[in-house]
């Protein structure tokens, strides 16, 4: 009976399992395998290269810069986005006039596809665009934004936060609303101030959604591609050359698919390492 059940279950599962295997798992394995091979003109076709592609990458200056830029970007963007999402979630769960409407306005950019957002912000960041228009109105000097080595990452972070903060805020609002009303009221009666209530009462109770947001946000920020490809092409001087874009340009502009596969493997390994580190940290101080 149990065996028959297994066969029927398998029939229902088969299409999805084939899809997941062929479209998710096989390419992941193939990236690992191909990263150990190289194209040889001399011997015609692909030959085993061992760790050759990896040592090539590590000795490549552009790649090392790309790793550095990606790590700097990761360290900056994730704390900023998680903190802003949390503060906004707290703000928009207070009983205040118009809170629902203002919250909706923050969530709205979720609907815009990231590539479309990048196109919009490419016009905003133009020298004669909206951003400089606002600065001039405030009496501030115009800024170069995307063409400045020091401003390019902050500019990308602003654009990515405009896209993402509303989305992550949704998870935290859901978490805060799970906090029982009595708990908040008890803290209020005990005379805890608003800051105290947020840090000692709300924050510990939304640990789980907060941990989820941190990890999921980190993963999505390590895969940022469209804004780099559309706005900066990794420039100026490689200062916004995030790994995902570097993989893409290595595969298609430079045309070295095997080294690009090795870089994909490094990108995924880096992602897993950072996420594992975050899990340890989050568990560590519990």
């Amino acid at each position: 009976m149990k065996q028959r059940q297994g066969l029927i279950a398998l029939a229902f599962l088969a299409p999805a399992l084939v899809c997941l295997a062929v479209l998710r798992i096989v390419p992941a394995i193939s990236a690992v395998v191909e990263s150990f091979y190289t194209e040889s003109l001399l011997r015609g076709g692909r030959v085993f290269a061992g760790l050759g592609n990896y040592t090539d990458l590590l000795s490549n200056k552009d790649f090392r810069q790309s790793i550095g830029v990606t790590l700097l970007f990761t360290v900056l963007v994730n704390p900023i986005q998680v903190a802003v999402s949390f503060l906004l979630a707290v703000l928009f769960t207070q009983r205040a006039a118009g809170a629902k409407l203002w919250r909706t306005l923050v969530i709205l950019p979720i609907a815009t596809p990231p590539a479309v957002s990048a196109v919009i912000w490419s016009v905003i960041y133009r020298p004669d665009g909206l951003a400089n228009g606002v600065l001039e109105r405030l009496g501030l000097p115009a800024q170069p934004f995307l063409t400045s080595p020091s401003q390019v990452l902050p500019s990308l972070i602003v654009l990515l936060s405009w896209i993402g903060v509303g989305y992550w805020m949704l998870f935290l609002i859901a978490g805060i609303q799970e906090v029982p009303e009595e708990v908040r009221e008890a803290a209020l009666l005990d005379g805890a101030g608003p800051w105290r209530r947020m840090v000692s009462v709300v924050l510990p109770l939304v640990r789980r959604p907060l941990a989820f947001v941190l990890v999921a946000d980190t993963v999505s920020n390590l895969l940022v591609f469209a804004p780099v490809q559309i706005l900066t092409k990794g420039g100026p001087n490689g200062n916004s050359n995030l790994l995902m874009y570097d993989v893409y340009s290595r595969a298609y502009a430079i045309g070295d698919i095997h080294v690009a596969q090795a870089e994909v493997v490094i990108l995924v390994a880096l992602t897993l390492a950072i996420v594992a580190g975050q899990f340890r940290l989050l568990r560590g101080d519990q």
């Binding site: 059940q5 297994g6 998710r24 992941a28 893409y248 690009a260």
Partner: peptide
């Protein structure tokens, strides 16, 4: 059925590998 845990594991594994990362392979 036997192996249900394994199949479920494959499903979870498949969404832990971000799609954009494997898009190029």
């Amino acid at each position: 059925f036997r192996g249900r845990g394994l199949v479920f594991g494959i499903v979870v594994l498949s969404f832990l590998v971000p799609f954009d990362a494997i898009a190029i392979p």
